[in-house]
Write a protein that binds this DNA or RNA. Structure first.
Length: 491
RNA sequence: GGUCAGAUGGCCGAGUGGCUAGGCACAGCUCUGCAAAAGCUGCUACACCGGUUCGAAUCCGGUUCUGACCUCCA
């Protein structure tokens, strides 16, 4: 299975070979965030998973169009707060425009993704900018008699669709089970009387008087339902049939199931491959805004959170996420993050050493085989943990070669350098975090280290240690080596 | 209640029936004025009970526990 890319398809529940519909073009869509709050750790996972895939597909010479949306039309808070949306609520509370709320959190999202070296998508459409497209799609679904209007709102007729279509094919849900479950545990929801069936979902909601985010439509002044934006925007930019649709596993139902229902009800095909990233857990429980156990990405970077023992850098987070496979849950803890931080530095140290390695006539290691292994792991459903493990194998060799315990041929050195760089930086998207590049600081440090050098030469350990201690307090580590001392700003 | 995933060494996490992933921690060593950093070496685990097999962490059945979805969520 190794020579070509395989990905796990939630639709078939199998790992399948990836074959684009129209090679060399590949269309992929990721359900982005609803921008009503600062991005938390969970948001980083899907973005990074797709970023690695985006990078890899691009390097495989595909012409990739990557669409990642921003949902800035607030979803309903819950059905009890009928007619009010999250973004609108925040806007009202702060006496600002809803778009100010959306913009603020969109900026925050972009900022942290940039820090984590996530490439921008090809297109980043906003739901609020595609209201006409959504209205058009709703009208088409109604024309196909799979949606109905009720009191100014439009609902998708799930029962009717289920008869002819294949509702539940993604999430494995059966309509009978849903109906059975509806009677027991389901909360009594307001507005249910407008629906023919409790499983029907809104395509368009009529706004109440206090609702501030609303648009005109043939049915009422209101706002689009939660699922329709993705159907409308993916069709607009990727066409009626595209390759990859991704998102968090918690969106599998009802969001993605509903998307399929809507799209196939107006002439679109179900996307070929569905990829779902698993959740980040905290003490074994899913991290979610609604559960109030979330850690913001910004908080992780600053260390400003009760659960955090220290700050963790953006690259530490990226590395931490890539060390687990995207389909596994990943448990958050200080211990795990500290392990990731050290592991990341070990990898970076090895990367920095390659260029200065001395070469011999032959090599002690089969680097071609090693290189093949990396591709095998990437092709195996983006197995980033194994890619990292394989890079660590090379890290050990690099250290051994550096210590003159192993040999490396000139030819293999080139191969090693290119391959290591390619996977570490180009594919996994890690970067060497700059510790210092400040001329003023360098000047000061050179002087301080020179004073300490003199002290050391005079065996004035008190002064030497005092300087070292003082610098540690200031956040700078001193490393004494054979060729003098160097310094490093602590992350 | 229904549906679906998991349970791996001190911790995090791979694992595609035979060839002990990897990282961190820990211990020893190298280096060092002492440290730190870095490097090397060591550390053979797979929830439980049955079964299939020459051989099972991996396949099958059962048990226990945990989680996700069924409601906004990445």
């Amino acid at each position: 299975m190794s020579s070509r890319l395989h990905i796990y398809n939630t639709l078939s529940k199998q790992t399948e070979e990836f074959e684009p519909i129209n090679p060399p073009f590949v269309g992929m869509y990721l359900c982005g965030p609803t921008v009503y709050g600062d991005p938390h750790l969970g948001h980083s996972r899907g973005a990074i998973m797709m970023d690695v895939l985006f990078r890899y597909l691009t390097h495989l010479r595909y012409k990739v169009r990557y669409v990642r949306n921003i949902t800035d039309v607030g979803h309903l808070l819950n059905d009890a707060d009928e007619g009010e949306d999250k973004i609108g609520k925040i806007a009202k509370a702060n006496h600002i425009e809803p778009m100010e709320v959306a913009q603020r959190y969109t900026n925050a999202y972009h900022k942290v993704l940039l820090q984590m070296n996530v490439l921008p998508p090809s297109i980043e459409p906003r739901a609020s900018g595609h209201i006409p497209e959504q209205i058009e799609m709703i009208a088409e679904i109604m024309a196909n008699d799979l949606a109905y209007e009720s009191n100014g709102s439009v609902y998708f007729d799930v029962l009717k669709y289920a008869k002819s279509g294949d509702y539940g094919k993604l999430s494995g849900r059966k309509i009978e089970d849903l109906l059975a479950g509806a009677g027991q545990e389901r909360r009594t929801l307001e507005g249910q009387e407008e629906k023919k069936n409790p499983n029907d979902f809104a395509l368009w909601k009529k706004a109440t008087s206090e609702h501030i985010m609303k648009w005109k439509s043939p049915w009422s002044e209101g706002f689009p339902g939660w699922h329709i934006e993705c159907s409308a925007m993916s069709e607009k930019y990727l066409g009626k049939m595209f390759d990859i649709h991704a998102g968090g596993i918690d969106l599998l139902f009802p969001h993605h199931e509903s998307e399929i229902a809507q799209s196939t009800s107006c002439g679109c095909s179900t996307p070929r491959y569905w990829m779902h990233n698993n959740m980040i857990t905290i003490n074994g429980q899913k991290m979610a805004k609604s559960l109030n156990n979330g850690v913001l990405i910004e908080e992780l970077f600053t260390g400003n959170h009760d659960l955090l023992e220290q700050a963790y850098s953006p690259m530490t987070l990226r590395f931490f996420l890539l060390q687990a496979h995207y389909r596994s849950t990943l448990d958050f803890s200080n211990e795990a993050l500290q392990a990731a931080e050290k592991g990341y530095h070990r990898l970076m140290n090895a990367a920095a050493k390659i260029a200065n390695l001395t070469t011999s006539i032959s090599s002690d290691v089969d680097f071609k085989k090693w290189r093949e292994k990396l591709f095998v792991h990437m092709n195996n459903d983006i197995a980033t943990p194994q890619v990292i493990a394989t890079l660590f194998e090379a890290a050990k060799w690099i250290n051994e070669i550096d210590a003159k315990n192993m040999c490396l041929s000139a030819e293999d050195k080139t191969l090693l350098q290119e391959t290591f760089t390619f996977f570490t930086f180009d594919i996994l998207g890690l970067t060497q975090e700059k510790t210092t590049n400040n001329e003023v600081l360098n000047g000061v440090m050179n002087m301080v280290l020179d004073i300490r050098k003199t002290a050391k030469e005079n065996k004035d350990w008190t002064t030497a240690d005092k300087i070292r201690e003082g610098l540690i307090q200031a956040g700078i580590d001193i490393m004494d080596g054979k060729e003098g001392s160097t310094f490093k700003i602590k992350q």
